[in-house]
Amino acid sequence: MARIFVCQNGSLGEGEAIKLEQASLAIAVVNSGGSLYAVSDRCSHGNASMSDGYIEDDGTVECPLHAARFCLKTGTALCQPATEPLATYPVVVDGDAIYVDLPEAVL
């Protein structure tokens, strides 16, 4: 595992997302309901950035282009046109910093 710094704890407000780019991988880190989630930044249906999506109060994110919704906790596609899930990654808060743990294989 590689631990990648995202931002300072407290700088990602409720309902906000930040895009983390590492090598050829883009990840959306989202604050929803006070919980932090990390999912693939690319919609599984098309070329849209999930960090630009609509963060919903029910723990989902909606694609800004296609209106597909995904569960932030599991990455599951919840409605059409998406049928494939988003990859999810562990988020770690360590002191004043937020990190995402990425498998070496994806870097």
Rank of each mutant, 00 (worst) to 15 (best):
S51K: 07
A28T: 12
G13V: 01
E104S: 11
E56C: 13
G75T: 08
P103I: 00
A17K: 03
S40I: 10
C43S: 15
A2P: 00
S49C: 14
S44P: 12
A68C: 11
N9Q: 08
E14V: 02
Y99Q: 02
V91F: 03
L36W: 09
G59V: 06
F70V: 08
A26I: 11
R3P: 01
G46E: 15
P85D: 11
G34H: 09
A105H: 08
G15F: 03
L25K: 15
S35K: 12
C63V: 13
Q22R: 13
L12V: 08
L36P: 03
T88S: 06
L78Q: 06
G59E: 05
G34T: 06
T76L: 10
G59R: 02
T83P: 00
S11A: 07
P85W: 10
D41P: 14
S49D: 15
D41S: 15
T76W: 02
A23G: 04
D57G: 00
F5I: 00
H45M: 13
P64C: 09
C79Y: 01
E56H: 09
R69N: 07
C7F: 01
L86N: 08
G53L: 09
F70L: 09
F70G: 03
R3V: 05
C63M: 12
E14I: 01
T60P: 03
M1L: 07
P81S: 09
I55M: 06
G59A: 08
N9V: 03
E84M: 12
Y89D: 01
L65I: 09
T60G: 04
A87C: 10
D57F: 04
P103E: 14
G59D: 05
S40F: 12
F70P: 04
G34R: 06
A97H: 06
I98F: 02
S51C: 14
Q80E: 15
V6L: 02
H66Q: 11
P81T: 04
S44E: 14
